[in-house]
Simulated assay, not measured.
Amino acid sequence: MDLGLKDRVAIVTGSARGIGAETARFLAAEGMAVVITDLDGEACAATARDIEARGGRAIGVACDVRREEPVRQMVAAGHEAFGRIDVLVNNAGLVKDRTLLKMDESDWDLVMDVTLKGAFHCARAVLPHMHARGWGRIVNISSRALFGNPGQSNYSTAKAGIIGFTRALSLEQARKGVTVNAIAPGFIETEYIKSLPNFDTILENVKAKNQVPFAGQPGDIAGAVAFMASEHARYITGTTLFVTGGRYG
């Protein structure tokens, strides 16, 4: 199925590794040019080189999405390299897990700033480019954790906030040709997760709770993002697609 993404340009935040990198590879395989952006500039460059080695087009740009000016510079670099910005995937995020009484203010602020302020800065920077063409897609990565996880009051709050941000922004942007949707992944078997010493226990727990009796893969999220970025999703905005193996709570 042709997703209608060929020759469009995407920015994927937090894409040096993991779900973000797999999403960037998937979009590049669909014919998009991709801006790989993350804090680690060397890792961004490595992921961009990997995409180019596969026949795609990509650049790597180090960026701290918590700060407005670096985001503007990153978007400008993408526009200079490829001439347009069509799709933004707000994937950047992190966990700083602690129960609330053990959580420092810095743990709270870091998760909020990367997840929510990062999405705010990036959306503000790309929207003028999308308005100029009358077409755009913003896909925000939330999480099943929005329903609440013990030890993740910061992360769960941030990911729930992404849903509110998505709904509000979709109402502002629909008549300008820009759709705004969210993806809420469940348990995804990334390299980082697989490196945890208790991975086998975690995996068995997930299999017991999922309706689908296996863990998700990064490609499952990448495919969902590509659909939401495509022409086939033109009549969808303000919604959240749960990619969770049937698990919600």
Rank of each mutant, 00 (worst) to 15 (best):
D2I: 10
D7K: 15
A10I: 04
I11S: 11
I11M: 11
V12W: 01
T13F: 08
G14F: 08
G14P: 11
T23W: 05
A24G: 12
R25E: 00
R25V: 01
R25M: 05
F26V: 02
E30K: 15
M32F: 10
V34G: 01
V35D: 06
T37K: 12
T37G: 09
G41W: 15
C44G: 02
C44K: 10
C44I: 13
A45V: 11
T47I: 04
D50C: 14
R57N: 07
A62Y: 06
R66D: 00
E68F: 14
E69Y: 03
V71M: 01
R72W: 04
Q73D: 15
A76W: 09
G78T: 02
E80Q: 14
G83D: 03
N91P: 12
G93Y: 10
G93F: 11
V95P: 06
K96T: 12
R98D: 01
L101C: 07
K102M: 15
K102W: 09
D104Y: 10
D107R: 09
V111Q: 11
V111T: 15
D113V: 00
G118V: 11
G118H: 12
H121G: 04
A123S: 11
A125H: 14
P128E: 08
M130R: 04
M130I: 08
A132P: 10
R133Y: 13
G136T: 14
V139T: 11
I141E: 00
P150L: 01
Q152L: 10
Y155R: 07
A158V: 13
K159C: 07
I162C: 06
L169M: 10
S170Y: 07
R175W: 09
T179I: 10
A182W: 05
A182F: 08
I183Y: 02
I183S: 01
A184E: 03
G186S: 02
I188H: 04
I188M: 04
Y192S: 11
K194R: 15
S195G: 00
N198K: 06
F199Y: 15
K207E: 02
A208V: 15
Q211K: 13
Q211P: 04
V212R: 02
F214G: 01
D220C: 09
D220N: 15
I221Y: 03
A226E: 00
A229H: 08
E231M: 02
Y235W: 14
Y235K: 02
Y235C: 12
T237K: 14
T239M: 05
T240P: 10
F242W: 03
V243W: 02
T244P: 08
G245T: 07
G246V: 03
G246E: 00
Y248W: 08
